[in-house]
């Protein structure tokens, strides 16, 4: 049975007579090999670089620690990012970092004690208790020394305190 398209197929088949020049295949192959060589050179340069990086990274980290370190780094970065957002869009730390320093840094308050007792007290001197005074609401209850003498020793002048105090024997030095 004759194919209804036989004629058109035969006509189209004539296109196979359109052919490239005779030396096309060998020229093409030469070009292809040249291209392959160039690609191979590029690949070996890239491969060498990659191999060196891989070796360096292998020496630095074992795969298990690399994964753990990468996870930790991601967690830290995520936490930092979250904190920055909470602190006002992430600009807080940066603003502080770039803020100018004050020209004069105020000095910290220092407690200066100017006392002749501390300055002049020789190490070997012994503090002697010469008298004990008991008082209540300013009324001296008992005294083995004159009241003005005791107050003078304590550096309080002649004023008396409303609460009784008991002075125990204390000594400085060895």
């Amino acid at each position: 049975m004759m194919n209804e398209f036989e004629n058109i197929q035969s006509l189209i088949r004539l296109k196979r007579h359109e052919t490239p020049p005779e030396d096309f295949v060998e020229d093409f192959l030469a070009r292809f090999k040249e291209r392959q060589r160039a690609e191979l050179l590029r690949q070996s340069a890239r491969g060498l670089l990659w191999e060196r990086i891989s070796t360096f990274m292998d020496d630095m980290f074992s795969p298990r620690w690399t994964t753990a370190a990468a996870t930790a780094a991601v967690a830290v970065i995520a936490a930092w990012g979250a904190l920055s957002l909470v602190n006002g869009g992430g600009g807080g730390h940066a603003e502080l970092a770039i803020a100018p320093l004050p020209e004069v840094i105020p000095l910290q308050p220092v407690l200066a004690v100017e006392s002749d007792l501390i300055k002049a007290e020789p190490a070997a001197r012994t503090l002697e208790i010469q008298a004990i005074q008991l008082s209540f609401n300013g009324e001296v209850l008992a005294s083995e020394a004159p009241a003005d003498r005791l107050s003078e020793l304590a550096g309080l002048g002649t004023a008396s305190f409303p609460v009784a105090s008991e002075i125990l024997p204390v000594s400085f030095g060895n």
Binding site: N7, S10, L11, R13, L14, H17, E18, T19, P20
Partner: peptide
């Protein structure tokens, strides 16, 4: 940009068939 048609087409039975038909 077409290739040349080779001389073989002159002897191609299909070409001859078409030209005679």
């Amino acid at each position: 940009s077409l290739d040349d048609v080779d001389s073989g087409i002159q002897n191609d039975p299909e070409f001859i068939k078409i030209t005679t038909a």
